[in-house]
Amino acid sequence: MARCGCGGGDQCACALVAGPGIALAGNGSSTDPYVITAEAAVEPEPPSPLSVQVCSLILGNAQPQTIPNDGSYHVVRFPFDTESYDAYGMHSSVQPDGGQVLDWRTNDRSGLIWPSRDGWGSLTAVIQWEAGDYTELRDQYVRDPLGLTSNPNDTTGTVHRPPSPGIQCWSKHHELFVHPDVPLALRVSHNASTPKKIILAQFKLAIYV
């Protein structure tokens, strides 16, 4: 809506309301007009929808892994034939760097998740130990635990835990940037007097892009 008021001479004052919160005003004459131009509004591009790529591994209680009582961290290994979910090929026996796993029970490569793409990664794990005479249990996530890159054993999310009575049941969560050429693993350690079994484990990566 526009309103103009002119005095006795050639000079006029105009006010224009173009919409909610949009108002213009100015003075003009026949020799020096006040000109308003309108351009079509350009709507900004909507943001791309968020997508998630997921790998979810499980070590069932029918396939426990024995962890030595040597004070060192050990990669938790996962079978290839009982995947919980791996639609993006992040846990394969033939791996992106050319390595191949023939027996998942003896090869630490079976514990690697190779991210399918760059992105923000959400790591989740479940760890259940058999009962034992522990005084401490440890677990951590690690980038490249096997020395396959120029920056191996880059650990994060390390936790030292006191034991509870009976079997030990834990879950853990951590977030980080992930990359396709840097594999990830879950590692554990304990200080019992004898080797102890992990009776259930889960290892999950969700990549948000």
Results as ranks from 00 to 15, higher is better:
158 T>Q: 11
21 G>F: 10
104 W>Y: 15
98 G>W: 14
84 S>E: 04
109 R>Q: 11
107 N>F: 11
37 T>W: 09
104 W>R: 02
178 V>I: 09
26 G>I: 03
122 S>L: 12
45 E>Y: 12
21 G>M: 09
199 I>E: 06
101 V>N: 06
187 R>S: 05
25 A>L: 01
47 P>I: 05
36 I>P: 04
141 Y>W: 14
17 V>L: 09
169 C>F: 03
108 D>C: 11
101 V>L: 03
27 N>D: 08
152 P>F: 05
206 A>M: 10
40 A>G: 02
141 Y>F: 15
33 P>Q: 04
16 L>S: 12
193 S>D: 12
176 L>R: 15
13 A>I: 06
97 D>V: 04
154 D>A: 11
68 P>C: 10
109 R>D: 04
192 A>M: 07
164 S>G: 03
165 P>I: 03
109 R>N: 11
12 C>M: 02
127 I>E: 00
101 V>G: 10
77 R>E: 01
153 N>F: 00
49 P>F: 00
5 G>E: 04
7 G>S: 06
180 P>E: 06
99 G>I: 01
192 A>Y: 06
57 L>F: 06
171 S>L: 02
130 E>C: 02
155 T>F: 00
97 D>K: 14
118 D>A: 07
60 G>W: 15
101 V>R: 00
27 N>V: 13
132 G>K: 09
141 Y>D: 03
34 Y>W: 15
93 S>Q: 14
134 Y>I: 09
174 H>C: 05
44 P>T: 12
29 S>N: 14
101 V>K: 01
65 Q>N: 08
187 R>H: 04
12 C>V: 02
93 S>R: 15
79 P>S: 03
40 A>D: 06
105 R>Y: 09
169 C>I: 10
102 L>H: 12
34 Y>N: 09
174 H>T: 09
99 G>Q: 12
36 I>R: 14
24 L>R: 15
23 A>L: 10
31 T>C: 09
14 C>D: 01
34 Y>F: 15
129 W>H: 04
122 S>F: 13
142 V>R: 00
123 L>V: 00
55 C>Y: 11
6 C>G: 06
162 P>Q: 04
60 G>R: 15
25 A>S: 08
141 Y>G: 01
183 P>T: 01
5 G>D: 02
148 L>H: 04
1 M>S: 11
180 P>V: 05
204 K>W: 05
48 S>A: 10
187 R>G: 00
22 I>E: 11
67 I>N: 03
186 L>A: 01
59 L>A: 03
34 Y>S: 08
204 K>R: 15
150 S>N: 13
8 G>M: 03
65 Q>H: 13
76 V>R: 01
137 L>R: 01
68 P>A: 11
148 L>M: 08
78 F>D: 04
12 C>P: 11
18 A>R: 15
86 D>I: 04
20 P>H: 07
78 F>L: 08
65 Q>A: 07
64 P>V: 06
107 N>W: 12
18 A>K: 15
103 D>C: 03
147 G>H: 09
21 G>T: 10
8 G>N: 07
147 G>N: 06
55 C>R: 14
29 S>T: 13
20 P>K: 07
